[in-house]
């Protein structure tokens, strides 16, 4: 369990220096944001890297901006614990702060960052689903400049994402929630804490002026595909309709029909499909009820 190989360790003092290092070291280096995934992978000898660029203490990459009517910006190296307990974020994006609070343990959340959680690009990650449901974008920075991507376009698959050599994930941009909308997050795992989800999901529901008809819905599933899975079937079921028990049941089936889970030590594929139905039914209803009050 020791890290046996030798590697160079860099601790840049500015974002610019970090970008220079990322560019010059290229794929021979790994970026350390919180280290809660990276160090474990190194200890378990799953990865071997020539260099580590430690950006965890860069103040330029930390911070939350969340103002009334202006959405929010969360810089990539913001610690999860700071997101979890940010009152403005909690009020505006409860699905996100709740998802963050369910990640790992207290000790992990003090170290880990949202940038790291997304760049690690695990199919079971907690934050990509709510970020996607909320319409979040990531800003990728390099010496050449910045580019924006929707979060679901950023994550390509298991431990694969859109980062090119020389780029780091700089920040998340969350749009201001539209009126009469609400987003909810849920997850299923064996335990109530310290769990790798066997499935998770975020649902964002927007209602028409009548506070009853669904105008828009975005349902994103985690841990049932190689990347966060944005449902195409569920909007077809729900948009333009008022929510009924029958529709809730159909929503569950629609989500299940799209999920492509695998069997592993945590759960069988069949069980994952079962609980995707349960999550979809519950979260659509919860988000719908919350949107009425929004």
């Amino acid at each position: 369990m020791n890290i046996l190989h030798e590697f160079e360790y860099f601790k840049p003092k500015s974002k610019k220096e970090a970008l220079e290092l990322v560019k010059s070291k290229g794929s021979s280096a790994k970026v350390l944001a919180g280290g809660t995934d990276l160090i474990i992978q190194m200890k378990e000898k799953m990865i071997k890297t020539d260099a580590i660029i430690d950006i965890s203490d860069l103040e330029e990459l930390k911070g939350i901006k969340c103002e009334e009517g202006k959405g929010a910006e969360i810089l990539a190296c913001t610690k999860l614990v700071d997101i979890e307990f940010n009152a403005d974020l909690k009020k505006k994006y409860p699905a996100l702060t709740y998802a963050v609070s369910q990640l790992g343990s207290n000790q992990v959340r003090v170290m880990a960052t949202m940038g790291g959680n997304c760049c690690h690009s695990s199919p079971a990650a907690e934050t990509p689903a709510p970020l996607s449901a909320l319409g979040a974008k990531v800003v990728l920075a390099s010496l050449e400049g910045e580019r924006e991507l929707a979060i679901e376009d950023f994550i390509h698959g298991n431990r694969k994402n859109a980062l090119k050599e020389g780029e780091i994930l700089y920040k998340f941009i969350l749009p201001e929630p539209v009126k009469k909308s609400a987003c909810r997050y849920g997850h299923i795992g064996l335990r109530n804490a310290m769990e790798i989800d066997c499935a998770n999901m975020a649902v964002n529901v927007e209602l028409e002026e009548d506070k009853a008809t669904i105008k828009n819905v975005k349902l994103v599933m985690g841990s049932v595909s190689i990347k966060p899975l944005v449902s195409e079937a569920v909007p077809k079921v729900l948009v333009g309709k008022k929510l009924t028990d029958e529709l809730i049941a159909t929503t569950g089936e629609a989500a299940q029909s799209e999920a492509k889970p695998i069997s592993d030590v945590r759960a069988s594929a069949e069980y994952r499909k079962d609980v995707i139905g349960a999550l979809a039914r519950r979260l659509v209803k919860e988000a719908y009820e919350a949107a009425k009050e929004a």
């Binding site: 335990r191 109530n192 804490a193 030590v265 945590r266």
Partner: peptide
């Protein structure tokens, strides 16, 4: 403790061997 048919140990860590936490 999960053991594969060939005797490999599938979950030899407290990450995958699930003990109840205080929340459970």
């Amino acid at each position: 403790m999960q053991i594969a048919p060939d005797g490999r140990f599938l979950n030899p860590s407290l990450h995958d061997y699930k003990m109840p936490t205080i929340r459970d």
